[in-house]
Nucleic acid binder design. Structure first.
Lengths: 364, 364
DNA sequence: ACAGTTTCCCGTAAATGC
DNA sequence: TGCATTTACGGGAAACTG
């Protein structure tokens, strides 16, 4: 049984940026009868694009130390302007092989889009053909297959995949809530990666990949420790929290801001009805000023005439906050004698008129 | 009378970074009798170093639009690996001229050092000779001259130079307090730029240039508005503040941290003696999380059993804080419906033994 | 080993192309 | 004109080198 495709290297290796060096390696997998001449290998690149090679394009194969004695050769310090394929020709034996297709980008801002192409390619075929051809001609994958690949993305790059509830939220986001079962739904390339989410200036995959990056850079231990529910629709959020006691909160990725995480908590309201409040999402720039666990620990709400208070008491469903987060608190203790050290406290000022959002209407 | 040298362009134009494009321009200052042939100009570079030119090295002079009709030619998109001089030859007339000496750097981390060379060169001579020769052979400048140049640095790059008190502090820092009058003291290149300040891992000029950068990026309006005393020795600080009423504070650049600014305030102590407290210096990374004026406005100290309080009340000598800083407060109020917006509050936790708790239990 | 330099390249901003 | 793509380069870090 075939696993959903998973990269062998966590650094998105099939995407090449113009002007950035990379390495390619050819390994001879068949054992040949002893040859007393050297095996020469030459790299060739498709004619459409240009390629700059700093060393020679021809090299001699050698026994690989770290492997079981098979012959290999490595080309280092390659720099491209653009290319689509790398062809390696074994001159001596008239053999030739071809790399997987490569996505060429000119700026890291294109990484997200490039990665989408490679995921899609690997989902749909193993044959080395041009990406755009694969994407346009093959039938689109089913959500059942795609969702598994997405979960693998998370488990590969972080350490924790996506659970059934999280994938269900993603399915609804992508295909709507009308579908009874999403797993047999086809997901088009366009819906996945090209069209914007209705009302938003970004596509589904762009939204998801920015979250993945946020986790990798700022939320890794908390995510792996399962403290982040993360993918929760507003409706589910309300259903989870509405009967919980005040101070119960959950962590959720923003659906309106790219690469943002927020917390939503239950506030005791005067009328007795539970009120849900969410903080403005924290993005990478704010999280580099203060780690998220510290934000949760120290967050305060200031309301007129009341003592400032941390509204976050119990992580949903009801775990005392410190029990969940204590190990992630960062003391960031700086000894800076003779100065008195200082830090940030995250605060919100609560104003009844703009701060509470209207209760979402349940729509099934 | 010659002014201390001032750059004509606020971007440190005589420093060139390898791999970064630059432009050079040659202007013919004498009016020539009409010539019916074109004046060709060619750029040449000293033999020691390599130079890559993206366009032709030869160009034809043309009448300059923005000027009084003199002939000029401009070379754009020049990129160097290394060079020391640019020589421009007017092929047609057997004329040639030479640029000012250039400092070539390979990384912006070398800007500070490069700029020191150029300041020094311009202080000591107008002749185009090799920098290292100038620096080693000429008698060092007097502090009277150097201090004027430093003040001009500040007024050029910010909008406000250095006053007598600030320069005096710099003189003491560089030459010690033993000297009765610093102005006639010679300051060696080594003392200025090469040797570390005793007990510190950086030189005098490095310390000063990091402050200049901090002002340019994060403190410009406040600096220009004369709110920052800045260059104050600990002794002077104490003399200024010791008899002031509690809450009086001043802003001072850190002498121990590169590119840092702190505030020192008078705290009422139980014994009746004034106690001076300084906060851990704010550097560019912290100031990009919260502007300095907002830090001053919102800063709180938390002491056991007391209500958190902003200890900053009067800017030395005694101006009510808001009167000085009101125009610099940044509302940065983000409308992020349906979220409740949030910001940082800078806080310190005060313990008599100067140890700060990691997790302040606070109310603001 | 180490300090002064240079290379590498991400990520933001500006420029360019379409 | 607006969006997609590329170029430019500051700045932190790694690699290099004498």
């Amino acid at each position: 049984e075939k696993q959903p495709w998973m990269p062998t290297h966590p650094q998105k290796p099939l995407i090449i940026k113009t002007g950035v060096q990379f390495t390619t390696k050819v390994r001879l997998l068949v054992k040949l009868p002893e040859v007393d001449y050297q095996l020469k290998v030459k790299t060739i690149f498709d004619k459409h694009r240009q390629f700059f090679i700093l060393t020679s394009t021809t090299k001699v194969m050698d026994v690989e130390e770290s492997s079981n004695g098979c012959l290999s050769v490595e080309f280092r310090h390659l720099v491209i302007s653009h290319l689509h394929w790398i062809v390696c020709v074994c001159v001596s034996l008239s053999l030739q092989t071809c790399s997987f297709p490569l996505v060429v980008i000119s700026n890291v801002s294109q990484l997200t889009g490039g990665w989408a192409s490679i995921m899609w390619y690997n989902m749909l075929t193993d044959e080395p053909r041009v990406l755009s051809f694969i994407i346009l001609s093959n039938p689109p994958p089913l959500w059942g297959q795609l969702s598994e690949v997405l979960s693998w993305q998370f488990s590969t790059f972080t350490g924790r995949g996506l659970n059934r509830e999280q994938l269900c939220m993603l399915g609804e986001k992508l295909m709507g809530t009308a579908q009874a079962s999403h797993n047999e739904c086809q997901v088009s390339w366009s819906k996945f990666c090209k069209e914007n989410i209705p009302g938003k200036p970004f596509s589904f995959w762009m939204w998801l990949d920015f979250i993945l990056e946020l986790i990798k850079k700022h939320l890794l231990p908390i995510w792996n420790d399962n403290c982040i529910m993360g993918f929760v629709s507003k409706e589910t959020e309300r259903a989870c929290l509405k009967d919980k006691e005040p101070g119960t909160f959950l962590l959720r990725f923003s659906e309106s801001h790219l690469g943002g995480i927020t917390f939503t908590w239950v506030k005791q309201s005067d009328s007795g009805e539970a009120k849900l409040i969410s903080v403005e999402p924290y993005t990478k720039s704010r999280l580099s000023a203060l780690p998220f666990a510290n934000i949760i620990r120290d967050y305060k709400v200031i309301a007129d005439g009341e003592v400032p208070e941390n509204p976050l008491k119990f992580l949903y469903p009801g775990i005392p906050k410190d029990e969940s987060f204590r190990r992630h608190y960062n003391s960031q203790q700086s000894k800076v004698f003779p100065y008195i050290s200082s830090t940030w406290i995250p605060i919100s000022t609560f104003r009844p008129d703009n701060a509470c959002r209207p209760a979402p209407k349940m729509c099934i």
